[in-house]
């Protein structure tokens, strides 16, 4: 068992190395670019929406950044993760290795990206004059949930992509929809109580809300809020794991 784990650990680290090298093509600029892209996005959003919403929201830049941070990690991880099975079909149809490792290793490079963006986020928070409190430590919780959630969605998508090759387009449309529904650049204060609850059905909104509550409002979300955050992550992960288990030996017919 331990031997098995050790073997997989070596394979996993080699896969991470491969994905990382391929993604950034051994250039510093490659890495910088993947952080710059969400920042550019942020800048454009700020330019466009600041006039519209900026006056009603405290620390609008941070508000915007928190939403953008969560959303871009989500899209990055899921879009890259989606092709992790199909892209490695040459390997798993020839060598018997755990297939989920491909997705996990893809997620590591997305996670590193997220981590770097998170550092810039905290720099912005400091620049905006928001004091750092012990409550910031609680952010580990939504980050953890988000990692599990992204892996779960990635598992589901990568499995689906094996069966349906137009998933990329469909997912593109769906992420657009999720972006609009995640209240990244607007607030939902003007909606009715029911509508506000409906927003909580969106995990991305939920996770960015957690960030905003801690960082901007300095309040700790309710226990129910915590439970919901964990539930989304576990449900997504559970469905993904089940799909991998069920179709483990079926994938090969489709690639």
């Amino acid at each position: 068992m331990i031997q098995k784990l050790k073997q997989n650990q070596f394979l996993f680290s080699e896969l991470v190395k491969r994905d990382f090298t391929k993604k950034y093509k051994r250039t510093i600029l490659g890495m910088a670019w993947s952080i710059l892209a969400p920042l550019m996005n942020l800048l454009i959003m700020w330019l466009v929406f600041n006039k519209l919403f900026g006056n009603n929201v405290d620390h609008y830049v941070i508000y915007l950044f928190a939403g953008q941070l969560v959303f871009s990690y989500f899209t990055d991880a899921t879009n890259l993760g989606m092709s992790s099975l199909v892209g490695n079909s040459g390997i798993f149809t020839k060598i018997n290795i755990p297939k989920y490792l491909f997705l996990f290793s893809q997620n590591v490079s997305s996670l590193i990206n997220f981590g770097l963006t998170l550092l810039i986020f905290f720099t912005f928070v400091a620049l905006d004059g928001i004091p750092f409190t012990w409550k910031f430590l609680l952010l580990v919780y939504p980050v953890g949930c988000l990692i599990v959630f992204n892996i779960g969605v990635g598992l589901v998508l990568s499995a689906l992509y094996v069966f349906f090759r137009d998933m990329q387009y469909l997912w593109g449309i769906l992420t657009q929809l999720i972006m609009w529904l995640s209240a990244i650049f607007y607030t939902i204060d003007n909606y009715g109580q029911t509508a506000q609850y409906l927003f909580l059905l969106n995990p991305i909104y939920l996770y960015s809300r957690y960030f905003r509550k801690i960082v901007i409002e300095s309040t700790i979300p309710t226990p129910q809020f915590h439970l919901l955050a964990a539930a989304y992550a576990l449900i997504a992960f559970g469905i993904g794991a089940l799909m991998y288990k069920k179709y483990n030996h079926e994938f090969l017919y489709y690639v």
Partner: peptide, 14 residues
Amino acid sequence: ENAYLRGAMLGYTK
């Protein structure tokens, strides 16, 4: 890098 990757896939340790 390829040699190490393949070795890892065949189940060998670093």
